[in-house]
């Protein structure tokens, strides 16, 4: 018997009976992690797995549900819209995010201010941000009013409930995920390299092309992949501001669940999940991306 009162699991960490056949200290980390691992299995992983299983065992074991997808026009259109939206949004984020990342890294006294502006939307829920774009893009929304006031259009045009609205709102929502990894990469560039380049007679543009851009590539790759993977799974924003016929994969899945069409919903979910995982697997192969990913996920 131990003479010292102590929490049992922690006591195991150091007390070592000389003749113990099994070293309990080795088990302590696993015992600490076990409650959460069991919890995640029971309330998250197994439910998702059970649902996905419906794609291959409904009504009996078969891959037919996947085979059908090759002829499924609805699926193919939806899949294409989803990829198309994700690519557009990712490109938009890259184009808008890079200058901001550079601005953030270059700025001195303004940096905290810029950071707050980047983080404020980051901290606001997707629902609220999508709602904000409903307010702005609606028939009598600010954008239409402004365009009319400027004389560019005569009567309100339809922006809300079009693919454009989805793209604008998604870019707005995903932009911080692009900015932060790029800013991270830019921050790690040794400033003396830039000074050296201009000392060697490079114009600012040449310095950018030949020094800054290549060195920030890992951040760009990380931001691009992160943005793309997140964009693939978007549901709330396209449902709120997108067009009624521009259905993304997530929306199609939700629809099928509403119709209790579980086998089809599960098949689509498996495709969506596999696409996301495939892209992440590719990402880990790229040099430098793994690290940039890790630091930006914090």
């Amino acid at each position: 018997m131990s003479e010292v009162v102590q929490p049992a699991s922690l006591a195991l960490a150091v007390s070592r009976p000389k003749t113990a056949p099994f070293d309990w200290r080795r088990a302590v980390p696993l015992l600490l992690a076990a409650p959460l691992l069991v919890y995640m299995l029971v309330f998250y992983a197994l439910p998702v797995a059970a649902m996905l299983l419906r794609s291959v065992n409904d009504p009996s074991w078969t891959l037919a549900n996947y085979a059908i997808l090759f002829e499924d026009v609805v699926f193919q259109k939806t899949f294409w819209i989803t990829i198309n939206t994700s690519v557009t949004v990712t490109l938009g984020c890259l184009i808008l995010g890079y200058p901001v990342a550079m601005g953030l890294v270059r700025a001195k006294s303004m940096a905290p201010f810029i950071l707050v502006i980047i983080l404020l939307p980051f901290w606001t829920s997707v629902l609220v941000r999508s709602y904000a774009w409903m307010v702005l893009l609606g028939r009598h929304g600010l954008v239409n009013e402004a365009l009319i006031a400027l004389g560019m259009i005569e009567r309100p045009i339809r922006i809300l409930n079009t693919p454009l609205a989805t793209q604008i709102a998604m870019i707005h929502i995903l932009l911080p995920y692009m900015i932060l990894p790029i800013a991270n990469a830019l921050r790690q560039i040794d400033p003396s390299l830039i000074r050296a380049a201009s000392g060697l007679g490079a114009t600012p543009f040449m310095t950018f092309r030949q020094v800054i851009l290549p060195l920030s590539m890992s951040g760009m790759a990380a931001g691009t992949l992160l943005t793309f993977v997140l964009a693939l799974g978007f549901y709330i924003t396209p449902a709120m501001v997108g067009g009624p016929r521009d259905i993304t994969l997530s929306m199609l899945i939700a629809q099928q669940v509403d119709q209790l069409n579980w086998a089809y919903a599960a098949t689509l979910s498996a495709v969506l999940l596999a696409t996301a995982l495939a892209i992440l697997a590719m990402a880990r192969k790229l040099p430098g991306v793994g690290n940039a990913f890790k630091t930006s996920m914090r």
Partner: peptide, 23 residues
């Protein structure tokens, strides 16, 4: 262990949601 615990960050929200709903 980290893969299991961190996976909700990357698994699309709709997949998690309907999986949970299903079970």
């Amino acid at each position: 262990a980290a893969g299991l615990i961190l996976s909700p960050l990357i698994v699309p929200g709709i997949v998690v949601a309907i999986g949970i709903y299903y079970a």
